[in-house]
Amino acid sequence: MVEGKGLISIWFFIGVLLLVYGIIILSAGVYHLFHPPAHPVVLANLHAAIWWGAFVLLMGAFYTFRFFPRRNK
């Protein structure tokens, strides 16, 4: 998509945001694993923030690396 104009791919932007989100959510999940909140959500024992944060992080890392601007030049 318009590489000729030097445009950074949208997938790179998505990757960066997801990578940062994944780090934040995974960190929050791990923190609450050791410091459970006073009012836990339903099925808090599943620790959804950990596995979902890890998934988002991996997805973000893949898109960031795959569509990194210098790599595509």
């Binding site: 934040i24 609450h32 959804a48 923030a49 979902w52």
Partner: peptide, 9 residues
């Protein structure tokens, strides 16, 4: 279902 982090997402 969503605690801190997931609720923000």
């Amino acid at each position: 279902y969503c605690g801190p982090g997931l609720l923000g997402l």
